[in-house]
Amino acid sequence: MKEKVDSLDEWAVWEVFSQLEWGKPHEHCGSLHAPDAEIALQNARDVYARRFSVKSLWVVPANAITATRQEDGESFFDPQDEKIYRHPSFYKLPKGVRNI
């Protein structure tokens, strides 16, 4: 038997990603509280997937996400759009491949 939990505040925050069509990327749709992964999935289903036709759901513990800091600002995000040769945009995609 596990240790007594004093408060619901101890439930972790999970970020939810849903995929609306097969092959499309999973997109962030919100967050929720849950005590573990299975319940997080069930909650995600009830909170975010009930009104749309969702193909797949991911739940990720919010504390597993490493994010940039606001002060990273320009040095980190300086756009390189004047140097188009740096972008992988010159490949021919095979026929039939969509969603890339």
């Binding site: 038997m1 596990k2 319940i39 069930q42």
Partner: peptide, 22 residues
């Protein structure tokens, strides 16, 4: 099928949870 998944998973967590929930 979903209702059962919901109630079954919760029952397991409450039963095998804290002393009080059990």
């Amino acid at each position: 099928t979903y209702h059962l998944r919901h109630s079954r998973e919760w029952l397991i967590r409450l039963g095998d949870g804290t002393e009080q929930s059990h």
